[in-house]
Structure formats: C-alpha cells, structure tokens
Simulated assay, not measured.
Amino acid sequence: MVTLDFGTLTVPVGIVRLLDLILTCISFSLVASVGHSTNSFWTWCMFTWCFCFCVTFLILLLEFMHLNEMLPISWDDFTTAFAMLAALMVLAASIIYPIFFTCATCGRQIGATVTSCLAFILYSVEVGLTRAKPGEISGFLSTVPGLLKVLEAYVACIIFMCLEYSAYWVHPGLQWCVAVYSICFIFALLVIIFTICRLLSVFPAPFDKVLICCNVLAVLMYITAVVIWPLYNFQNNKTRPPNCSNLPKCAWDNLVVIAFMTCFNLIAYVVDTFYSFRLVFFVSRT
C-alpha cells in the first residue's frame, strides 16, 4: 500500500528540491518561448534544465509516496550524486547560455539565466544538506571523495565533448592523454555505478584501499597529461587564430578548454586522494 508523506516536502531538503523544480521549469520555459535553435550549446542548455527538472520531480514523487524504499539502490547515494551532477550541469548552462544567447534587450533570455543561476545555488545547497559529515555512517557518494568522483567524471565528459579526432591522432603523446582521460573516467563511473547499485561488496579487495591506489595512479597519469597536452598543441600554436572570431565553434578554443579541464581534474584527484587517505587512516580509526 502506498502511503503519502507530506513531511518530505516540508523538510529543508524537500523545500530546496521544490524550488529547484520551479526554477529549472521557469528556465527551460522562458528559453522555449523565445524559439528553437539548432545550435549545440542551446540544445545542451535545454537538455540540462529539462533533465534536472524531470529527475528532481521523480525524486520528490518517489519520496512523497515512499516508493524509494522499494528500489534496489542506495537512495542516499543516488540523490547526493544527482544533486552534485545537477549543480555542475546547471552551472555550465548558466555560463554557456548567456555567452551565446543573451543581449541587452533579451529579457526572457536574461530571466532564464537568472533562474538558472539560482537553481545552481540551490542544487549546491542540496549537496551541502545531503553530504555526510566526517565520521558519519553513510553511503560513499555522500562523502567528499564520493562527490569528487562525480565531479571528476563530469569534467572528463566536458573533455570528451571538446575532443576532436584530428587533434590527437597524429601524436602518440596526445593519444596517451586521451587514454588517461578515458581510463580515469571509466574508473570514476564504475565507482559511482557500483555504489548506487550496492555492488561494492563484489570488489576482490578492500574498496577503500583500491580507491586510494587508483587515485594515486590517476594523479600521476594526469600530471603527465597536464604537461603533454599543451606541449604538443600549443608549442607552435600559442595565439588564438584570427578566424576564430568568425566561427561558431573554434578548434583552438576546444584545445584550451581541454588543457584547463585537465588541470582542474588533476586538482580534483589530488584533493580526492587527500580526503581518501584522511577517511581511511584517520577518521575510521577514531
């Protein structure tokens, strides 16, 4: 028998999710009212707002009807991971959309940007409300290392979106960088999937020790990518080509984004390794 729990809508997390629902709905409604565009950036922003709206509505509905307890997944891990992913996606949309589609007289576009920024703030608040505190018994994705895994996977997705085959197929060094991005992304994705599906027990070794080893390896691999990627791509191509200003999508800009995101992910893996060491060797012992 399905029971309705209005209390899930009045707790702080429930209120934040309701506001997320309203703001993402306003964002994609305002943008849709302006008209359709075939630009890939427009499509990405619309997908972001619609995706976050639908999943947030699904989470609220399942918790309101207590159906989440019947799902064979770690619900806390799922909701925390989604809040982190939604915050990152909405942040990207809040930056991309105004750059390409707003102007001084574009009232609805500016309104969509404002509501998108507010949605990002609220999703970040939701992450803070659902995140496990140090020493607290909770799902892995509710901890700082778990949230960093979502961040690392998302940044890798941005790198993949900017990659073009012609940019790396000539040099083995650049192919190594792509291998680094791919290997680390696959591991982060497996950790997220295994955690949400409660499959961590199938690891043949202690999960926390495996995680530390993989994080250290990822740091070393990303250090090589941080050096190799700009070395090969910008050695004779240090300035932005003049024709880039007239193109909707410039290959040189993509190379810069990849270089920046590589450095960003290296920092994320370093912080991830630090927190993993702290959780395993300090918090768990106390």
Results as ranks from 00 to 15, higher is better:
Val2Arg: 05
Thr3Ser: 15
Leu4Ala: 14
Asp5Ile: 08
Thr8Asp: 03
Thr10Met: 06
Ile15Pro: 13
Arg17Leu: 10
Leu18Tyr: 00
Asp20Val: 01
Leu21Cys: 15
Ile26Lys: 02
Ala32Asp: 02
Val34His: 02
Val34Arg: 07
Val34Thr: 08
His36Ala: 06
Thr38Cys: 09
Asn39Gly: 09
Thr48Gly: 12
Thr48Trp: 08
Trp49Gln: 13
Cys50Asn: 06
Phe53Arg: 03
Phe53Ile: 03
Val55Phe: 10
Phe57Arg: 00
Phe57Trp: 08
Leu58Trp: 15
Ile59Cys: 04
Leu60Tyr: 01
Leu60Pro: 05
Leu60Ala: 08
Met65Thr: 15
Met65Trp: 09
Leu67Pro: 04
Asn68Ala: 13
Asp76Thr: 11
Asp77Asn: 15
Thr79Gln: 03
Ala81Ser: 15
Ala87Tyr: 11
Leu91Ile: 07
Ala92Arg: 08
Ile96Lys: 01
Tyr97His: 12
Phe101Asp: 10
Phe101Leu: 08
Gly107Val: 14
Gly111Pro: 09
Phe120Arg: 01
Ile121Leu: 10
Ser124Thr: 15
Val125Thr: 11
Glu126Ile: 04
Val127Trp: 01
Leu129Lys: 03
Pro134Tyr: 00
Gly135Gln: 05
Ser142Thr: 14
Pro145Leu: 02
Leu147Lys: 06
Leu148Asp: 00
Lys149Phe: 05
Val150Phe: 02
Val150Ala: 01
Val150Arg: 02
Glu152Asp: 07
Ala153Leu: 07
Ala153Asp: 03
Val155Leu: 13
Ile158Thr: 14
Phe160Lys: 14
Tyr165Gln: 07
Trp176Ser: 04
Trp176Gln: 01
Ala179Pro: 04
Tyr181Gln: 12
Ile186Phe: 08
Ile186Gln: 06
Ile186Leu: 11
Phe187Gln: 10
Leu189Glu: 12
Val191Ser: 03
Leu200Ile: 06
Pro204Asp: 06
Ala205Thr: 07
Pro206Leu: 11
Pro206Lys: 15
Phe207Gly: 00
Leu211Lys: 06
Leu211Ala: 12
Asn215Glu: 08
Asn215Gly: 13
Val216Pro: 01
Leu217Gly: 04
Ala218Asp: 06
Leu220Thr: 15
Ile228Met: 14
Pro230Ala: 11
Thr239Ser: 07
Pro241Asn: 03
Cys244Tyr: 07
Asn246Lys: 08
Cys250Ser: 13
Val270Cys: 11
Val270Glu: 00
Val270Asn: 05
Phe274Lys: 00
Val280Ile: 07
Val280Gly: 00
Phe281Pro: 07
Ser284Arg: 10
Thr286Ser: 10
